[in-house]
Every structure is written in C-alpha cells, then in structure tokens.
C-alpha cells in the first residue's frame, strides 16, 4: 500500500512510456506507430507533472484570499507540459499528413512494403 501511495503515478507514467515504445518498435503499420507516439507523449507528460506534485499542496492559482503560497504544487512542469501537449498535437497532425501522402503514393501503410523506408 505504501508503495502504491508513493509510486502509483510513476507506475502509470512508466507503463505508458514502455507501451508506447513497444508499439513504435514492434508494429509496422504507420498509423499504429503514430498511435504509439501519442501514448508515449502522454506518458512523458504524466511523469513530468507527477514530479512537480506536492503532497498536501493546492493548485497554483490564487483563486481566493488566504491561500498559503507555501503549499502550492510546482508550476514550472505544468507550464512545460502545457506547451508540450500543444506541440504534440501539431507533430501528430504533421505525421498523419505524411502517412496519408505515403498511402496515396504506395497504396499501403506497411513499412515492409514501402521499400524506401525499409531498415
């Protein structure tokens, strides 16, 4: 139980990062690889936010008077993740556009069949 209390969020972030990497490494379908990128993105964001967490803290917003500024969670990872999410959607859209173009040219999304991409 104490392990869960300290590491539940870390386990989630760790699992998401590993599953995302597994999808990217094992799958050969381009859309599936982009799904893996999105899962990896979510995992890294969750990790960054949980690093900035402060037990018994509050959200970093002075929404009313009398909120103790000493007990707020760290705002810096939140600002970084906010930018990372928006950049993530732009990168995903660009990657999906490239995948759509590849499908139009080659008629397949399988990386084995797209000869120029073979590794």
């Amino acid at each position: 139980m104490s392990f869960l209390e300290s590491y539940a969020y870390y386990v989630g972030a760790f699992g998401l990062i590993l599953i995302g990497l597994l999808v990217i490494l094992v799958k050969r379908n381009l859309i599936k690889i982009i799904i893996g990128l999105s899962i990896l993105d979510t995992g890294v964001n969750l990790f960054l936010i949980s690093v900035g967490y402060l037990a018994s803290g509050t959200a970093p917003i002075f929404s009313r008077e009398g909120i103790d500024s000493g007990s707020m969670v760290d705002p810096v990872p939140q600002a970084l993740v906010l930018t990372a999410i928006v950049i993530g959607v732009a990168v995903l859209a660009l990657a999906l556009g490239l995948a759509v173009r590849l499908y139009q040219n080659y008629g397949t999304l399988d990386m084995r069949k797209i000869k120029e991409l073979k590794w």
Partner: peptide, 18 residues
C-alpha cells in the same frame, strides 16, 4: 524513477514563481 521522491519538494525556480 525510484530515486525521485514523490510529492516532496518544489524546485527553487518554482518556489520563486509562487
């Protein structure tokens, strides 16, 4: 991950911002 304590401290720059 095991080395990073969960829910303990904020960074110095974060403390300044708050």
């Amino acid at each position: 991950l095991m080395e990073i304590p969960f829910g303990e401290d904020t960074t110095n720059v974060g403390g300044y911002y708050i």
